[in-house]
């Protein structure tokens, strides 16, 4: 394969990773809506979307194997393909978290009216924002800018951790004071945990981008 063909295939691989990221993002917001409204049809849609995410992850990783097999890439090219493989795996796990959140919506379906899901949307916005910036760093060709973007994502993780800790404290207090809230509170904690994990995995992607760009491994998240 000529170099231009290789670049074209690498560009396609990157586009497929970004498509996977977009799928994850929209599925995540659908899942939050499913928990707020406890709409079974929305929860079912999340399940279908997660199947699509799984399929797209397989497709990206298959493309990685094909490129490695045909091109025996080295140096920056190899790191880029390995990153794409790894990021696809991280995104697929995020899809699982979205599905987990949607399932909580079904479990809470006996609750009347709209559910007060507290600060979950704010946490979700920040976690998804981290994901977007991590993928922006993945696409960034300029080494310095890519590292800056990746490091910004890593620093935002602490904020999501703090929001999760605050919400956890409030929910536990509420459960102590109101035993009728224990079931709902437990499920909301579970959902909050899933959102916090999305932030963690966005951080993994950012660290991965740093490795891809610099060739140096940072500590595992």
């Amino acid at each position: 394969m000529a170099r231009s063909d290789f670049d074209r295939h690498l560009g396609q691989l990157e586009a497929d990773v970004i498509l996977l990221g977009s799928l994850v993002e929209s599925t995540f917001y659908t899942a939050l809506e499913a928990i707020r409204t406890r709409d079974k049809a929305l929860a079912e849609k999340v399940k279908t979307d997660d199947d699509l995410i799984d399929e797209q992850r397989r497709s990206v990783q298959h493309a990685c194997v094909e490129l490695i097999r045909r091109e025996a890439p080295v140096a920056g090219d190899l790191r880029r393909i390995v990153s794409a493989w790894d990021i696809a795996g991280e995104l697929e796990r995020m899809g699982d978290y979205a599905e987990g959140i949607a399932k909580i919506g079904i479990m809470l379906r006996d609750q009347p009216g709209e559910l007060d899901i507290r600060t979950l949307p704010g946490m979700a916005d920040r976690a998804v924002g981290m994901l977007k910036h991590a993928l922006e760093a993945f696409l960034e060709r300029d080494e310095k800018r890519a590292v800056e973007l990746a490091q910004r994502v890593e620093s935002q993780d602490e904020e999501v951790d703090r929001m999760y800790a605050d919400l956890r404290k409030k929910l536990i207090n509420e459960m102590r004071n109101n035993p009728d809230f224990v079931e709902t509170g437990t499920y909301l904690l579970w959902a909050a945990h899933n959102i916090e994990r999305v932030a963690d995995r966005s951080t993994n992607i950012a660290e991965n981008v740093e490795y891809q760009v610099t060739g140096r491994m940072s500590n595992e998240h």
Binding site: R3, E71, V74, A75, G76, R79, G215, R216
Partner: peptide, 17 residues
Amino acid sequence: IFGSPRDPRTEAYVTGR
């Protein structure tokens, strides 16, 4: 040399550019 070359010319050569 093949993982993280220090010279951009090495990177360009080993990756086939």
